[in-house]
């Protein structure tokens, strides 16, 4: 469902309680109860989970939220509709695979910094297979034939694993919700994604915008569903993003 200067985030970290996990017969790890209050059990989230991220720039963030939302519904959505008419879904997924393959260094370096040897191996194998048998990454053969899933690793997550707090909550134009920590992670990732270093900068920006647009053509439905069903969309997106990112940091 969707998706942050570290000094101000110290209180956030103390609020985060690792919920006890339940190993299931299937091997999947299930969330379980997180908080016991007298007489009642609130499962799945801590009291602090609801509003524990600092948002002193709320006015700015709300303005950016509205900007992004209007940008999506007024400009991008109609453009996506036209794009989808012309470019078949399979081709759009191939383009997404191509960019995902090029972003391998982000996942590989993050895995390295997290000392996740297996994840490093998987990423290396995926890159080798997809860059060759997968025709320069357009086909995700590693996943379809070898069941090697892309590892959900990024620099913001890695910083979180090192104990760095989220910091302030931001909503950036075009990028969307983030935190100070994740924004720092995104900045580092710029230098780990080869095509972002293409010269001139205008060309790199153009490629980036196309990748962004293509992904939106495949995934924006999740954003739409969240916003359409939300009673208070700004709070919904913020909470969903924070919960999601905390889960990404918490998990192996």
């Amino acid at each position: 469902m969707l998706l942050a200067a570290c000094s101000s985030s110290k209180h956030v970290q103390t609020d985060l309680q690792e919920p006890p996990k339940v190993e299931n017969p299937s091997g999947e790890t299930a969330p379980s109860t997180a908080l016991q209050s007298p007489g009642e059990t609130i499962p799945g989230f801590t009291e602090a989970q609801e509003e524990s991220v600092a948002d002193p720039l709320e006015s700015f963030n709300r303005a950016m939220f509205i900007f992004n939302d209007k940008l999506y519904f007024w400009a991008m959505k109609p453009a996506i509709r036209g794009y989808n008419q012309v470019v078949p879904e399979a081709a759009r997924k191939s383009v997404r695979n191509f960019f995902l393959n090029l972003e391998m260094p982000v996942r590989f370096v993050s895995s390295l910094l997290q000392a996740q040897i297996v994840a490093m191996g998987i990423e290396l194998a995926r890159f080798t297979i997809n860059s060759t048998a997968g025709v320069a990454g357009f086909l995700d053969v590693a996943k379809s034939s070898f069941y090697l899933e892309p590892q959900e690793k990024d620099i913001g997550q890695t910083l979180g694993k090192y104990g760095i707090g989220e910091g302030l909550y931001f909503v950036w134009p075009f990028v969307g919700p983030s935190t100070a920590r994740d924004t720092g992670g995104l900045f580092v990732e710029l230098f780990l994604t080869p095509w972002r270093l293409v010269n001139p900068a205008g060309a790199a920006a153009g490629i980036g915008m196309y990748d962004y647009f293509n992904r939106a053509s495949l995934d924006a439905i999740e954003y739409e569903e969240l916003i359409n069903s939300a009673v208070e969309p700004y709070a919904a997106l913020k909470n969903a993003y924070i919960q999601y990112r905390r889960n990404v940091v918490k998990n192996k």
Binding site: M1, P31, I42, P43, G44, F45, Q49, E50, E51, A230, V231, E232, Y234, A235, A236, K238, N239, A240, Q243, Y244, R246, N247, V248, K250, N251
Partner: peptide, 17 residues
């Protein structure tokens, strides 16, 4: 919970706001 997002916490964040 879906993708680590508690729907109850999500609702609570909106309603309290």
């Amino acid at each position: 919970q879906i993708s680590g997002v508690s729907q109850l916490a999500l609702t609570r964040a909106q309603f309290t706001e």
